[in-house]
């Protein structure tokens, strides 16, 4: 009798709580970003400057080095998720949140960031600077 009652109560509790539990987890959003994006127009960036571009729903950083080369990487700091920026004074990538530094290949070189920024391939296609995810990463 006790067991029946207890089991019944438990079963109803589970049947109430399970949907609530599932409800708390948001549906997975699909990132329609694709694997490459036009990050800028040729001539838009001066040498020794950078800009944030949209890579799907996430920010990426496109840098034009002092020698005029393009570099691209994820702009999401590997420390705690802030958005990084290019600092023309030190010619490095900087995260303002906790003073983290990366070099222009995205390698973490100072401060708290534990890992490099994901680096992207860049090629110029006519008038467009196209950034794409590297294969196999």
């Amino acid at each position: 009798m006790q067991v029946l009652l207890g089991g019944g109560l438990l079963a109803s509790a589970v049947s109430f709580l399970y949907p609530v539990w599932r409800y708390l987890v948001p549906p997975v959003a699909t990132d329609l970003g694709g694997d490459s994006v036009v990050a800028a127009k040729v001539g838009e960036l001066k040498a020794n400057s950078g800009k944030i571009f949209r890579f799907g729903s996430r920010p990426g950083l496109l840098v034009r080095t002092a020698d005029g080369e393009y570099r691209a990487m994820s702009a999401i700091c590997t420390h705690l998720n802030c958005t990084v920026q290019y600092r023309s004074d030190v010619r490095e990538v900087w995260c303002a949140c906790h003073n983290g530094f990366y070099d222009l290949n995205g390698r973490n070189i100072a401060g708290p960031p534990p890992r490099p920024l994901e680096s992207y391939a860049v090629h110029v296609n006519g008038d467009d600077v196209v950034v794409s995810r590297r294969r196999g990463t």
């Binding site: 944030i52 571009f53 949209r54 920010p59 702009a75 705690l80 802030c82 958005t83 990084v84 920026q85 995260c95 303002a96 949140c97 906790h98 708290p112």
Partner: peptide
């Protein structure tokens, strides 16, 4: 799609943890 601004800091009551991190 804008970088975190320089000098960013949390509210004062979280600053001691922020500075430690």
């Amino acid at each position: 799609f804008v970088p975190a601004p320089a000098g960013i800091r949390p509210e004062w009551y979280f600053v001691f943890m922020f500075q430690t991190l």
